[in-house]
């Protein structure tokens, strides 16, 4: 990072201030509110006032709430699989479309479509495609001789169906970020590599990838955070079922908060959620930065 430059403190602060102040102004109150509520029991819908319960909510979450652990397991597996797949696909696409390929503008735009559509709409659209009786996917597979597959009704299969939809929807995010990064790469390095007779794969592995790593870390991090918050697809396609096989952490929190209006417990869950995501992001930052 920067060599020590004679930059005034005021300028430094001045650059950072707008973001920092804004986030503080808008962020502090919700944080305090939810943190204090997480030590209370408050069934808000029935007009009773919050009762202080200390750490009981957190105790319940960790030791007496199988539903939490179930959604935790599902969410972690989900995040891992979708982020890895999206990163690989996104890298491949960005790599290909960074080349001079005919119609590449067309592809660049087309591949952004899934990300641009509201997730709610996407969830509903996929629900239509996957409809077991009348959905086109089932009919196409049927015409190929593969008879009914229980995508939305088999507890072992449905999580993967959601992942496929997620990959469909969010690969463009990786693609876009990586394409932007590819384009800031200094070209002369490649020319040098070319001269040295490096293969395409070698050039990618030893030149491009290390250069891309910082942005990859950032993209993975941002994508992982959003994947953790998986909500709309569950909400729109499966409702968490069959059984509880696709109940994500954030969907569970939503259920507790906005359907049971058990706001104290929902706030505790949110803080645990925040803890998990912070932990994972720290882990990612350390681990991936080290591998340069």
């Amino acid at each position: 990072m920067g060599k020590a430059q004679p930059i005034g403190k005021g300028v430094k602060i001045g650059f950072l201030a707008p973001s920092l102040l804004y986030l503080m102004a808008m962020g502090i109150f919700p944080l305090v509110w939810s943190l204090s509520l997480s030590f209370h029991r408050w069934k808000a819908a029935t007009a009773s006032s919050p009762i202080f319960v200390g750490l009981k909510n957190f105790y319940t979450i960790f030791f007496a709430d199988p539903r939490f652990w179930n959604s935790f397991r599902f969410t972690v597996i989900y995040v891992f699989i979708v982020v890895v797949s999206e990163l690989s696909l996104g890298l491949l696409l960005a790599y290909i479309l960074n080349e001079k390929i005919r119609f590449r503008n067309f592809f660049r735009v087309v591949f952004l479509f899934p990300m641009a559509a509201p997730p709610i709409g996407i969830a509903f659209m996929w629900r239509m495609l996957l409809n077991p009786d009348a959905g086109i996917v089932g009919k196409i597979m049927g015409s190929m001789g593969i008879n009914f597959v229980r995508w939305l009704t088999d507890a072992k299969l449905t999580p993967f169906v959601l992942m496929v939809v997620d990959i469909w929807e969010w690969t463009p995010f990786m693609f876009l970020g990586l394409l932007a990064a590819f384009q800031t790469l200094p070209v002369e390095l490649y020319d040098a590599a070319q001269v040295d007779g490096a293969s395409r794969f070698q050039a990618f592995r030893f030149i491009t990838f290390p250069l891309l790593l910082p942005i990859i870390v950032t993209l993975v991090l941002l994508r992982a955070i959003d994947a953790f918050k998986l909500f709309e697809l569950v909400f729109g396609i499966t409702g968490g079922g069959p059984g509880t096989s696709t109940e994500s952490l954030s969907y569970y929190t939503y259920t507790v908060g906005f359907q049971y209006f058990d706001l104290g417990y929902a706030c505790s869950l949110s803080w645990v959620f925040l803890g998990i995501v912070l932990f994972v992001s720290q882990f990612l930052l350390r681990r991936l930065r080290k591998e340069v």
């Binding site: 996957l130 409809n131 077991p132 009786d133 009348a134 009914f148 229980r150 939305l152 009704t153 499966t238 409702g239 079922g241 069959p242």
Partner: peptide, 18 residues
């Protein structure tokens, strides 16, 4: 029907009236 577990309101009603 094999899709029973994914029958919400719309799926049920559509499937039955079809």
């Amino acid at each position: 029907p094999p899709g029973l577990l994914s029958y919400g309101y719309s799926e049920l009603r559509q499937a039955f009236v079809s």
